[in-house]
Amino acid sequence: MNKLRRIQWDALLMPMVGVVLSLLAWQLVSGRVVQKVQPDGTMEEVKSGLVQDLPGPIQTWEKTSKYIVEPFAKREELDQGILRFTWYSLVIVAKGYAIALLLGTPLGFLLGLSKNFSKMFDPIIQVLRPVSPLAWMPLGVVIFANSGRSANELAALFTIAVCAMWPTVLNTAVGVRAIPQDYLNIARVLKLSRTKTLFKIMIPATLPYMFTGYRLSLGIAWLVIVAVEMLTGRIGIGNFLWNEYNNGLYTSIVLCILTIGLVGFLLDRAMSLLERRFKSAI
């Protein structure tokens, strides 16, 4: 009983305390606008605070609540509920992520299976892997410039896929190399065909590693989307953030940052649950 209460205290209350403390700290450092009476008797608005242009939590809520209380509203093209923007982003992330997995998994298998393939392409992968999405994006735009109306979308998908697939590639390759020789010996003794060995033994044995890769890839795909939308102007949460910045509405930036973080966190949680399911199956 005592222990249970302790666990609840730890699991629920402590994070809440952390949130409250963070909000307080945020409020403390953020800027305020105060009315000041000038010597000549007129009132003037003066900014004060440690970081004068950082909107505080209260101000953020006041200015952005319309995006939050009606999260799916669509008033105008650039004035929609925050979750509606998020949804647009999620759709494009899902597509790019799917491409990343479809390319990355087989590539990882090839790397893991063939020493020569690995020797040939591992250096190239190591070079391409650290390239920022901001660097890939213009290339995507150029490549798909002639694709008419879907050019923007294709460029975005290209960027997401090419940035997000590396963890999948590398983890799958590691997983394939880590398949215990005993499992492969079973396949040899039973004379399983190549396809059967792949589907009955190699893929199930690699699955936990693959899922680790998938999880990391999803995190990257979500990171990339904001950059992609800023550059292509596709409607979505990153694009919203960029527009509001250009309009000088800094409270919306804060809202977007919090939303992006929260969605990323939820995606990661969901993947980790899936991952655990597959790991416990093994």
Binding site: N185, P204, L207, A281, I282
Partner: peptide, 9 residues
């Protein structure tokens, strides 16, 4: 085999 070698899944 020496170490069972059953497929765990």
């Amino acid at each position: 085999f020496q170490n069972y070698s059953l497929l765990p899944w």
